[in-house]
Amino acid sequence: MPEALGISRADCMAGGHRPCTAATLSVQDLSWSPGRGRETLLHTTSFALEAGRVLGIVGPNGAGKTTLLRLLYRFHRPTAGRVLIDGEDIWTLSARSVAQRVAAVLQEQPSDFSLTAGEIVTLGRTPHRRGFTGAAGAHDKGTCNKNSRDKDIVDAALDRLVLHGLADRHLGTLSGGERQRVMVARALAQEPRLLILDEPTNHLDIRHQLEVLALIRDLPLTIVTSLHDLNLASGVCDAVLLLQSGRPIGFGRPSAVLSEAAVSAAFHVDARRERLTPSNADHLVFHLREKGTPP
């Protein structure tokens, strides 16, 4: 499957310890509500994503983007439908074995209990370990090879996010962009086959936004990310899913899904696709509707 995408995946970010495989993701008739008699926050949604592809989830605030992501990383149990990763229903697998395949970078802010960036990245190894180990690891011979392998993986993740100088710094002393990179490195240390990102460019300056997008493009993983910026989504995603009021209203190539009409309807704005000069790239621009214009 990876060969079909024309990208070499022989070597992964963990230094080639194991050939990294990207997962296929299949969502079948998925819906979710917080409880019996409560409003359904995600209505029947289905889509399939090939291994190694990047899916952007877009839509206005409250459209159900976060709900869908929570269903994908096994935080919510579906009211109906299934999420299949490499053909396996995530709710027939244990939480731990799902954590060995799926990692997520969320908007949650870690509380500051003095963990260092290096220790947080090491926590990414949690689902691959058992028993008596803190962030420092065990020290008997039996776990020796596994530990040095863990250490290599953590080192590679720190390298990849250019964090080696910061490994001993406490998270509380890092900037917003650096914290975000720590959380991405932590997710990579998990060696996932599917990476889920919730608004990864939020609160980042332009340079850090571009870095995150470059990373998304380069990682040999299947990636699902929610994004507010539709132009960023068009640039980085192989496919987008447009949600509105908990319903999927479009899935496919960004240029096809994010049409002027669909975006205008979903976000209640006037969207127009313009062409930038001299780059000759498509760019969506938005205007508030005149008062009294019918939706």
């Binding site: 990383y73 939480a95 731990r96 074995s97 799902v98 969320l106 870690p110 949690t126």
Partner: peptide
Amino acid sequence: TLGDETASTLGI
């Protein structure tokens, strides 16, 4: 300490 959802994505 990373947060409920992040901890749950680590298999806890």
